[in-house]
Amino acid sequence: MRVAVCLKQVPDDTGRLSALDDGSGLQGADCTWMLSPFDRYAVEEGLRLRAALGGECVAVHVGPDHAPSVLTEALALGVDKAVHVWDDAFPALDPLATARVLAAALRLTGPFDMILAGHRGVGEDHGQMPGLLAELLDWPQVTLAVGLTVEGESARVVREVEDGREEWRVTLPAVISAQKGLNEPRQKSLKGVLEAKRKPVLRLALKDLGTSLEDLAPQLRREHLVASPRRGAIRRIAGDPDAQARELVRLLREAGKLR
C-alpha cells in the first residue's frame, strides 16, 4: 500500500511571534519551526499502515522547509522517502493554490492508495487542505479521523465531530485527515535520525509540476495581519458573593457564552 503524508511546518512558540509593522505578515528571521502537531498523527498512521500492510510511506511538503526540516523529521521517524516542493517563483500561496501544487506533486509521485494529513495546521489554521485535495483528485475524503482500519479496497474510519462520533466507509484511494486520538505518535530514534540523511528526497519546482503561475494566483488574499487586540479592560464585579455570582451569570448569558 502506498501512503502519502502531507506535512505543514508551523512556528513553534506563537508567544514570541510578532507582526510586521506594515501589517503584511509575521517577522520570521529567528522563528523556531516545527511540524504541525496534527501531522504527527498522520505520519504515525502512515507508518503503522506500512507496518501492517507493507508498501511505502512518502512525506510531502510544500513550503520553504526551514531548519529543522519537517521532511527530515518525517524521514527520521521512519518514512521511506520525502518530496519537497518549492520554487522561489511561487507567489504567496493561498490554500487552493497550495492544494493545486500538492495535487500535482502527488500525481507525479503517485499512484497512492491513501493520502493522510493533519486535520488542520496550527499556523494559519485554514483546515481546508484535506477537502481541497480530495476534490482536486476526485477522491472521497474523511476528516477528523480517530480510528482507521483498511479493509481490502476500502477503509473504515471513525471520526469525531462536535456532538459525537460517526463511522464512514470509503473506497480507496481516499484522503483522510487525522485528529488527536487517532494513535500515539512515536518518538524519533537516534538511528532514525542518522539514517534519515541517506533516504531519498525528491525536489520539485514549478517546471516539474505542469502547473502554470496563473493556476496559482491567489483566490484568497491577505490584506492585513495584526496582533490580536488586547482584551478590553477587565470588568470587576462587586457586591456580596450572591450578587457577584448572579451578575456574572447575567453578563455571560448576555454575551452568549452560556448555551
Binding site: 512515536r186 518518538q187 538511528k191
Partner: peptide, 8 residues
Amino acid sequence: KPSFQAGA
C-alpha cells in the same frame, strides 16, 4: 508510556 523508546 505507549510511546516509550529506549535510548541508544
